[in-house]
Simulated assay, not measured.
Amino acid sequence: MSGTESSDYTQRLARLESSGIKRLLPTQAPYRWNLKRLALGRVLDVGCGIGRNLLNCGPESVGVDHNATSVATCRERGLTAYTPDELARAEDCGPGSFDSLLCAHVLEHMDEELGNSILAQYLPLVKPGGSVVLICPQEAGYKTDATHVRFVDFDGLRAHAEKAGLTVERTYSFPFARSVGKAFPYNEFILVARTPAA
């Protein structure tokens, strides 16, 4: 996770959120729609950053991030977010207390072993039979961030799901067809899975 723990990284996320065409057009609208149609209920947003996705999750949802500055930014936005140590102490965030886990634009920042470890750490907080959504950027998006260390495609997401004991329900490219991801930096690989039922 080299470089993602600094306040500079938080500032970069904030700049990107309102730069260029994003100042003029509702570029996040398709991604908001996609999250809402998944009907994820109370979400644990792992690697929540400054809350871009958390803003579009259910009102009782919670973010966790290792960057304390990003967590503070989420709180300034009225969101509930914790560092890992704070989450471990939060009374309403124990085992099985979330309907789903979202891990968006996180796994590409770490090696496979650490990615598996992060998922293993937080999956017990999701109720049996709950949803898990893993999202990573496609080629053009991967190249836009120097803190990306590993390209994670559909096969990579499935490998993480298998290691975590999840049942994959579907994978899809969003918002455009897979071929667009080589040129369009905001195309994503998305995997939707379920935790084992009780």
Rank of each mutant, 00 (worst) to 15 (best):
S2M: 12
S2I: 07
S2E: 14
S6R: 01
D8G: 02
Y9D: 07
R12M: 10
A14Y: 11
R15M: 06
R15K: 06
R15A: 06
L16V: 12
S19W: 11
S19F: 09
K22M: 06
K22C: 04
K22T: 06
R23K: 13
L25A: 05
Q28T: 09
A29V: 08
R32E: 12
R32N: 08
W33T: 14
W33Y: 13
R37I: 14
L38T: 04
A39T: 02
L40P: 10
G41L: 07
R42P: 14
R42A: 05
L44G: 02
G47C: 00
C48D: 04
L55T: 00
N56V: 12
E60C: 00
D65V: 06
H66N: 13
S70F: 05
A72T: 08
A72M: 10
E76N: 12
E76G: 11
T80C: 10
T80H: 09
T83Y: 10
P84W: 00
L87E: 05
A88W: 06
A88R: 04
A90D: 08
E91C: 02
G94K: 01
P95L: 01
P95Q: 02
P95N: 00
D99K: 08
L101C: 10
L102W: 12
C103H: 11
H105L: 15
H105Q: 15
L107A: 06
E112L: 15
E113G: 10
L114P: 11
G115F: 11
S117Q: 15
A120P: 15
Q121N: 15
Q121C: 14
Y122C: 10
P124D: 02
P124K: 01
V126C: 13
V126E: 08
K127D: 12
K127P: 15
G130R: 04
S131M: 15
V132H: 06
L134Y: 01
Q138R: 03
G141I: 08
G141D: 04
Y142C: 05
Y142H: 04
D145H: 02
T147G: 05
T147F: 11
H148R: 00
H148W: 07
V149K: 01
F151W: 03
V152Y: 09
V152N: 08
L157F: 07
R158D: 06
H160T: 05
A161C: 12
A161I: 14
R170H: 09
T171Q: 14
P175C: 02
V180A: 09
G181A: 01
K182H: 09
K182Y: 10
F184G: 01
Y186V: 10
E188Q: 01
I190Y: 03
V192L: 10
V192R: 03
P196W: 05
A197F: 04
A197S: 01
